[in-house]
Design a protein around this nucleic acid. Structure first.
Lengths: 202, 202
DNA sequence: GGGTGTTTCAAACGGACGTTCGAGGATCAT
DNA sequence: ATGATCCTCGAACGTCCGTTTGAAACACCC
């Protein structure tokens, strides 16, 4: 409640957009969660659309800023581990990272067009990091298509747990939100991915 | 146009629900795509909600029916390959399988509650198949949690390509919809997953 | 052909949505 | 105090949504 109205609106909108998607987060709910009036949204942002766009780019900026530098891992194995460790907790734990992931997931399922603007500048770098993580394991003459596919293969393992695990509590896994569990997941994925990649013919 | 109105409505609804999700597929659009009147939806199904529920269970039933028996693979490697081959094309190619995948993806992001009914009977079997596929590679005393996590790890690799690949055409991969590409993806995933799993200590 | 049950259709309903408007309050320099 | 500027608020606007209604069109049996 301490921040100004604009920031409260951004925060409330981010939460609701992440939970329900663009169309099902109503301006009335957003205003209510921000403890302000309906019309403030059109006052501070010109429209719901512009608010959404701002939430999206704001979320991307903040996520990239909080990215850890990776402490200069030297071996390819450590760089791969660092990549996995930077992705899995965002998917498993709650918080800003999870909200960000959900925003992206919504945009993947039904693009509003807002992502087009930041696709080149915000998403491509993340994919490039994934490519860099797997490249040292592949033969130098690996085709760009196979490199991209392998990068996606790696990303998929890290992202699956959000979206599936939180819904299927059929004795599938223990409480999937605490930090320890995220650590165990990171270790498991590192293990499996590393062994798969390391045995690729160079 | 040859089918009766009810079936045309189901088909149109399935397509629109898959494309836009429950809330953004309007009954007017569904009726228009089915070449019929608005009110037919409430005539054949009591409400939009009931139509959605029927689309969902119908989709699950059809997907399970068309599942190939797997021709009795004997080795654990063949069984794993069969599982991957049963999942990847559904994610990469267009058609009924892709629509089904999108319906499930929507339900994962924003559960309407309709999935609760079929979760136990329709989703759990699929997860069990994944567990069966990875179990022969793991130590007999592997905890259920690790077994479940490994199963999800496998599923994640197969599902990532839908949702990401189709949006990122930044030179990431060649045309991702033709059959040959799906085959190459299957081969790649089999390779990586098999090598990762095979090197697990038994 | 008349009666019966089923299917289609245009029109309207109430409600929820995003947006706009103008009056009023708050804050500050002059 | 006075005016200017920024912010807040309740009320209303037009639009689109899911649903209902009642009558017309159709199919079928005796």
């Amino acid at each position: 409640m301490a921040q100004n109205t604009r920031e409260r609106l951004l925060e409330a909108a981010r939460g609701l957009f992440a939970e329900r998607g663009y169309h099902n987060a109503t301006v009335r709910d957003i205003a209510a969660r921000a403890h302000t009036n309906l019309a403030s949204i059109n006052y501070y942002f010109r429209s719901k659309d512009d608010l959404y766009r701002e939430v999206l780019s704001h979320s991307f900026r903040k996520t990239i800023e909080t990215e850890e530098p990776g402490e200069e891992a030297t071996t390819r194995e450590d760089r791969l581990r660092a990549f996995i460790r930077s992705l899995v907790p965002k998917s498993v734990e709650d918080g800003n990272g999870a909200q960000h992931m959900r925003l992206v997931a919504w945009e993947m399922l039904s693009p509003t067009g807002a992502l087009d603007q930041i696709e080149e500048t915000e998403i491509k770098p993340h994919l490039d990091r994934a490519k860099d993580a797997v490249r040292p394991f592949l033969a130098p003459d690996t085709s760009p298509a196979d490199l991209g596919a392998t990068a996606l293969w790696l990303v998929g393992q890290c992202l699956i747990f959000r979206g599936l695990a939180e819904r299927m509590r059929l004795g599938l896994m223990p409480v999937p939100t605490d930090g320890d569990h995220a650590e165990r997941l990171v270790a498991l994925i590192c293990d499996l991915a590393l062994k798969g990649l390391s045995s690729m013919p160079l």
